[in-house]
Design a protein around this nucleic acid. Structure first.
Length: 825
RNA sequence: GCGCGAGUGGUGAAAUGGUAGACACGCAUGCCUUAGGAGCAUGUACCGCAAGGUAUGGAGGUUCAAGUCCUCUCUCGCGCACCA
């Protein structure tokens, strides 16, 4: 009997599978389709890491399970090759990004194959391939043609290290999420996509899909819808008005001042000569500070009085106008009224000695008094005081009434604001899709005609971005100089490129039809495959890739390029794999576990795959633990040994003393396992599914060692074969090898998922729980479906239980058939 | 501060309101041997000789019955954050 040698069998089967194209999805199948999508990787130089391995292994479990169930499964893979990581890698290693990408893709693909993923490699895509980005550019032009892409001079987040603009989503704690450099503000003319137009749809669409709650919550949070009102404040002795945004119109009687953002356009006009010098000084100061610096000390509310006064439209009170850097220029109207019912405002009033009035108090009288005395700040909804005819209303009623009152005078209107900003879509980098626009002195920005797509990236020698905020493409005259497609007069190409999120915003669609050079995807294939049935990815993309790609799909559905707006029916996120010491894996900490090392250590892909499924629930962040691996390896050895033993015993098999009860037991073990694994896989409980397989194997061992000759050969054969089919979802190589050793010619992948025998699930005898006053007092092995009276009489005959019930009056008996009996005494 | 989620053995973790700790790691004892990165058997929450009692971060509550439901509270993780 041979020993289990994963390296030998794994490479053998990987080769066979790829030769036989088992995983190529069929575009014209009669079967029901099922698309399993996992986020495609950046092909960085370090090869795949354990995080990829977890994500793709879990996706592979689903894909293999669905395939055995008879679905036409599409489980594709590609490479998100544009973007900063690849460019930085190329610069560092002094090779061209094209070459770097090719090399890295090759090694990624090789490594993924070593892990036995059932990917359809015939559909491989690469976002940096001109044949692919031709359609990224074409799709961008659809945005442009529908006024969804526009150019504007904006103050953008600028990364001085990467020398490029960033989207809000890429800035984390004031730093660029990739390189951790402090982000600066810079005014640049940028291409923007109107994602804000889809804010409501992106919230509402979540109701139609099955996303993990926290994913949906995070997206809703990020979009940050808030309903309130815009109110006009007239400036005293002036024709000017300042518009403010508030969600708390019920507190307007408390408005003690107006506060504008330093960048507010009216600041200059509202500043009196007397204050001008100091105000300008303050503005200069804030501009020199980064967002992070501004937020370092949230307690100190700096600001400056402009010299003007505004008129509170509700009561005609004159209130001073200030600027302060805690008011954000790019949210709402860039101006607010300051009042005591907001913690920040209250702090501002206190620090600048502005007199505050209370207008909302809580119901609790003692608390209300403290609020009136201004010893306590009350920011919640309550009841109105000091508010003329609105006194006594609750906050919600007051908001409505006051809004109506002001609307009638033309001084207010309802307003919904979002935190979500339009998407800065320009990058000043070489390694991205060129934005396919030509700037004509006469016609302005003009779309590159479809027949001229793709606008290919020119090959250049220096990829280094420039300091002046321009893409390196701007230095290539032969690229820049062109003619206007409308008037054929000299014109210039756009030199900005798209962000790395562009290619990934629609990549899943390209898998449906990866080689089409006539259209981004053939409508017939699109209708068959769209939408994605199951999408697994990282939590970190919830407000980046996931939101962006939903936005693209929503827009493309609006212009009839997609059948429906929501691209992913189910979205789940796998947990992060931490280093063995419980902290994030990183080179500097020296706690990186490389999946390829695990393979080279002789454990093999099957043990690794199993360990990944077994270590914890799939969505839990978990520290890598190589002892789990030793356990799964041991388990596979036991599977290997018992089946090889069976094949040996098979030849000299003689039935002795046939035992039908034992045979039934064997069948029940297998049937229970299939049932349990099926239930668990449907819920993505891979860890308990694998535990069920281990439990079943323990059961098989027990019966096999003692009583192999008491059960018919074909029952054994059937049990082991069923076992292997279920196992093949998790560990395809060893399953395939043992399947062959058992004498089957056809691949185990072409088998069908076993059917659970419902009759075998019903137990003939059960273990009844016996409780007294809810406390466990023992169990009783009895026939199933006994009546309460029968059970009670059995218990009364039982000395052990009698000890508890004797001399007691039984008040009540709770009886749940086949489960429990509880005596209340 | 806001939004989500989680707290269970020495460890990773199981438990449709119904036997808490499945499965696995580790450990202990024994067996076997071709002495291995093995294999097999038994045991392994805590207290107690036992009968029994106590245990799911803490405090209450609902219930015949609570890890699970409710209220309060503590701790940790993730996300967002001067968004009016």
């Amino acid at each position: 009997m041979s020993r289990y040698n994963p390296q030998l069998i794994e490479s053998k089967w990987q080769k066979k599978w790829s030769e036989n194209n088992y995983y190529q999805a069929d575009d014209s199948s009669q079967k029901t389709k099922y698309v399993v999508l996992v986020e495609f990787p950046y092909p960085s130089g370090t090869g795949i890491h354990l995080g990829h391995t977890r994500e793709y292994t879990l996706g592979d479990f689903i894909a293999r399970y669905k395939r055995l169930q008879g679905y036409n499964v599409l489980f594709p893979m590609g490479f998100d090759a544009f973007g900063l990581p690849t460019e930085n890698y190329a610069i560092k290693h002094q090779i061209s990004p094209i070459k770097a990408t090719q090399d890295n893709i090759q090694s990624f693909e090789k490594q993924m194959k070593l892990l036995g993923f059932s990917l359809d490699w015939s559909r491989k895509i690469n976002t940096s391939d001109p044949a692919y980005y031709k359609w990224t550019q074409w799709l961008f032009l659809q945005f442009f043609k529908h006024d969804m892409a526009y150019q504007t001079e904006v103050s953008i987040n600028w990364c001085p290290f990467c020398k490029t603009g960033l989207a809000n989503e890429e800035v984390v704690n004031g730093r660029h999420e990739r390189c951790d450099t402090l982000v600066e503000k810079k005014k640049l003319k940028q291409w923007m996509l109107r994602i804000t137009k889809y804010a409501d749809q992106l919230i509402d669409g979540l109701k139609q899909v099955d996303y993990l709650d926290k994913i949906a919550d995070q997206q809703i949070n990020w979009i940050g819808k808030s309903s309130g009102a815009k109110v006009k404040f007239k400036i005293n002795k002036s024709h000017l008005t300042v518009e403010i945004f508030t969600t708390r119109l019920d507190t307007i009687y408390s408005a003690a001042c107006l506060i504008l953002a330093p960048e507010h356009p009216l600041v200059n006009q509202l500043t009196t000569d007397q204050n001008r010098a100091a105000v300008n000084e303050y503005i200069k100061e804030t501009q020199s500070k980064s967002d992070v610096d501004r937020q370092i000390d949230k307690q100190t509310k700096t600001g400056y009085f402009l010299g003007s006064y505004a008129v509170n439209p509700i009561n005609q009170n004159l209130i001073p106008v200030y600027i302060a850097d805690f008011v954000l220029a790019n949210y709402g109207t860039g101006a607010v009224f300051g009042d005591i019912h907001d913690e920040r405002d209250a702090e501002f009033l206190r620090q600048h000695h502005i007199k505050a009035t209370v207008s909302v108090v809580p119901k609790d009288k003692q608390l209300a008094q403290r609020v009136i005395d201004q010893t306590e700040i009350f920011t919640q909804d309550g009841y109105l005081i000091n508010s003329d005819q609105f006194n006594g209303l609750n906050s919600e009623q007051a908001r409505k009434s006051i809004l109506e009152f002001l609307i009638n005078q033309g001084l207010a209107k309802e307003q919904i604001n979002y935190r979500l900003r339009d998407w800065v879509f320009s990058r000043q980098h070489y390694w991205g899709e060129p934005i396919p626009i030509i700037h004509c002195p006469v016609h302005g920005p003009v779309a590159v005609p479809d027949q001229d797509l793709p606008v290919e990236l020119p090959k250049i020698s220096s990829y280094q971005p420039t300091d002046d905020g321009k893409s390196p493409l701007s230095k290539i005259a032969s690229f820049v100089q062109t003619v206007c497609p409308i008037c054929h007069q000299p014109a210039e190409r756009e030199t900005d490129t798209m962000p790395n999120w562009a290619g990934s915003s629609w990549y899943y669609l390209r898998y449906f039809d990866p080689n089409n050079d006539k259209f981004f995807v053939d409508p017939v294939k699109l209708n068959y495959w769209y939408p994605v049935d199951f999408y697994l990815g990282g939590m970190e993309h919830t407000t980046l890739h996931l939101l962006y790609s939903r936005f693209w799909a929503n827009f493309l559905a609006d212009i009839k390029l997609l059948p429906s707006p929501e691209p992913y029916l189910v979205r789940r996120a796998q947990g992060i794999v931490l280093g063995p010491n419980g902290s994030k894996m990183s080179k500097s900490k020296g706690n990186v576990v490389n999946p390829m090392d695990i393979l080279n250590n002789g454990y093999g892909a099957d043990s690794l795959r199993l360990a990944i499924g077994f270590i914890a629930p799939y969505d839990l962040t978990t520290a890598w633990n190589s002892e789990i691996l030793a356990g799964t390896y041991r388990f596979l050895n036991r599977v290997w040994n018992i089946i090889n033993q069976f094949v040996v015993d098979h030849d000299n098999f003689k039935i002795i003393d046939e035992n039908l009860k034992l045979e039934q037991q064997l069948k029940v073990i297998i049937n229970n396992m299939v049932n349990q694994v099926e239930l668990d896989l449907n819920k993505l409980n891979f860890n308990t599914a694998i535990a069920s397989m281990m439990e079943a194997l323990n059961g098989l061992y027990k019966i096999y060692q003692k009583s192999i000759n008491q059960i018919k050969l074909e029952v054994w054969q059937n049990a082991f074969e069923t076992y292997l089919i279920v196992l093949s979802v998790f560990t395809p190589h060893i399953a395939e090898e043992l399947w062959q050793i058992m004498g089957r010619d056809q691949s185990i992948q072409l088998s069908t998922w076993p059917i659970v025998d419902q009759n075998l699930l019903i137990n003939k005898t059960i273990t009844l729980i016996v409780q007294v006053n809810g406390k466990l007092r023992g169990t009783l092995n009895i026939k199933a479906d006994l009546h309460q009276s029968e059970v009670e009489s059995l218990i009364k005959q039982n000395q052990h239980f009698q000890a508890y019930l004797k001399h007691q009056s039984i008040k009540k008996v709770i009886f749940i058939s086949n489960k429990l009996i509880n005596f209340v005494i």
